[in-house]
Simulated scan of single mutants.
Amino acid sequence: MAKVVKLEPISRETTVNTNDNLLSALLDSELHVLKECGGRGMCATCHVYIKEGMESLSPINKREQRTLEVITTANATSRLACQARVLGPGVVVELPSGMYVNAVEDIESLIGRRAEQDILHPLDGRVLVEAGKLITRTMITQLKDTQVQVGQYFANTSDA
């Protein structure tokens, strides 16, 4: 049976089947979520806050807990959308402000402009480029290094 999930601050509602994860609700709402780890609960790219209905979600598992512990913007209402399955009604999700880098090439076209919103690190959620700051070539180099680190991280964890 489908459950309604509210998405804030964009004032949108979507439905998900019982036992589906919140990530499917975000993707069905055509929100740009990276799924850097492929939905394995190992990155920060689907990190959300639960404003209401935490009791209507599956419990936090050990992998999700470990990942949440390294996300710098996480708090007691944090969940990873890929791990939180919707079991009951009344879930209200607050999307964190900022965006994760999908491809460095996308950012290269922005050199010389100001970031419209925070650009976040895909593993720990820390801010790489603050909203309003000028995007420089040096920042692009740092982002490329981050992309390599993320690739190496997931290559190493898939072997384990």
Rank of each mutant, 00 (worst) to 15 (best):
M1K: 14
V4S: 13
V5A: 05
L7K: 12
L7C: 01
L7F: 08
P9V: 11
S11I: 02
R12A: 10
T14P: 00
A25L: 11
L26A: 13
L26Y: 10
L27Y: 05
L31A: 13
L34E: 12
L34T: 03
K35M: 04
E36L: 01
E36R: 00
C37S: 00
G39R: 15
G39V: 09
R40G: 04
R40C: 06
G41K: 08
M42L: 15
C43R: 01
H47C: 12
I50K: 05
I50L: 13
E52V: 04
E52R: 05
E52I: 02
M54E: 03
S56Q: 09
S56K: 10
S58F: 08
K62W: 06
R63K: 05
R66D: 06
L68C: 05
E69A: 15
I71E: 04
T72E: 09
T77I: 04
T77P: 01
S78N: 05
R79Y: 06
C82G: 04
A84D: 00
R85S: 11
L87Y: 03
P89W: 12
L95A: 02
M99F: 12
E105G: 11
D106Q: 11
I107K: 04
I111Q: 00
R113H: 07
A115R: 09
E116L: 14
H121D: 15
P122A: 07
P122Q: 03
D124C: 04
R126N: 08
I135M: 07
R137T: 13
R137V: 10
L143P: 06
L143Q: 02
Q147F: 08
V148Q: 10
G151K: 09
N156G: 09
T157G: 10
S158M: 02
D159K: 14
D159M: 04
D159G: 12
